[in-house]
Design a protein around this nucleic acid. Structure first.
Lengths: 214, 214
DNA sequence: CTCTGTGAAGTTGTTCACAGCC
DNA sequence: GGCTGTGAACAACTTCACAGAG
């Protein structure tokens, strides 16, 4: 499937996931064909950008015609490796962790959350959306017995170092960190740091900047 | 406060919000001084990157010494414009919207959510964490009477177009979009699109890529 | 003529190397 | 010596301009 690129450029990778979301919507509407120009308009980018992003793959468009939506989706899904099941655990079953455990789009996309972990007695032993919640003390043992690809961190920031010690010692392949601290990648583990408050701050800056531009 | 840069480079802006999170943690620990090298280690970047990012501001470090944590925080906060109150509404009071309405770090950072909107009868008229929930039909009138800087979208994706029509017609300055579709910026409105499922997909790709590299 | 695909040019972001202050 | 600040060199990404297929 890959052509020119040894691995997808960082920003291409990000955009491709966005393309995918729009393609799903198009497919749901019964649209079977799309041009780079039409897609770029939805995405707020340019047609050339779309085509350049796709240049990493074997040609998936038809000149004079455009792209077949279904084929387009398939190629991206294969490239992202989301055509297989990935097992996930959620560490910290607060409002956000619990929201993720209920989130249908995740399971639809084959990310299956198989356990939650928390230190609160009233949560441990219960189920959230059918998913068992275990005590954080059991995490180390659990990771020895179960193959987990992704660990999601939705716990208080001061509990992160302890949990990360356990995770770095395990076979977990990636961490999605939703706490306001940075978790760096290393040889054995990928990571992604998301902090929604930071996004609010970025919007604050943009608002301020635009106001000044008057 | 600004020096060389007419506006902050895109990636500098993003990193600065990350620096801020680490600086808050340092301050909470009572640490008053930090070097670019130490900070860069926490962030998974380089000391030069940190210093380059700061080159947009009037010099805030001392050669041979490092940066004063409190001053560092102050400069960033001022630049981001988060030293003032910003009013926020949440459209779609599901699990995620509700989690945001409870999120302490948001109000601590002066982002005050003053209303939620939903179409579900059983939610309208109630309060979530003391914040009133109104019917989405009231949104247009509400935006005429209240100055809102940021609208957060946490509603089903098929309801987005209708809501965006109202918002684009209003004085809302920015949208934080948590639905899996793209909302583009225009002259009157900034936006930021976040889709956590896309982040899972990016991790999937990274896991696959690392596995292949063996 | 329409739309994809892609080297080449242009722009933006990162790293290097070192000057300047503590 | 230690650490900041920055022009210059380098690398990554985006846009341009156009060749090529339907």
């Amino acid at each position: 499937m890959k052509k020119n690129c040894k691995s997808l450029p960082k920003y291409t990778l990000k955009r491709i996931t966005d393309y995918l979301n729009e393609l799903y919507l198009l497919k749901a509407k019964g649209i079977t064909r799309i041009s780079s120009r039409e897609l770029s308009k939805m995405m707020g980018t340019t047609d050339v950008q779309v085509r350049k992003d796709l240049s990493c793959f074997d040609s998936i468009g038809k000149r004079g015609v455009g792209y077949d939506v279904t084929k387009f989706i398939k190629v991206i899904e294969t490239e992202l490796g989301i055509d297989r099941e990935l097992s996930v655990i959620v560490i910290g079953v607060g409002r956000l962790g619990s929201a993720l455990m209920h989130y249908k789009r995740l399971s639809q996309a084959k990310f299956s959350i198989i356990a939650g972990f928390d230190i609160a007695k009233e949560k441990v032993g219960k189920k959230v959306n059918g998913i068992p919640v275990m005590h954080s003390g059991e995490l180390e043992g659990f990771l020895l017995k179960n193959r987990i690809e992704i660990a999601v961190l939705t716990l208080p920031v001061d509990e992160v170092p302890g949990v990360m010690k356990v995770i770095r010692n395990s076979d977990v392949k990636a961490v999605l960190n939703l706490t306001p601290t940075m978790i760096n990648e290393d040889d054995g583990m990928a990571s992604r740091n998301l902090d929604i408050v930071s996004d609010f701050k970025i919007l604050s800056y943009k608002i301020k900047e635009r106001a000044n531009a008057d």
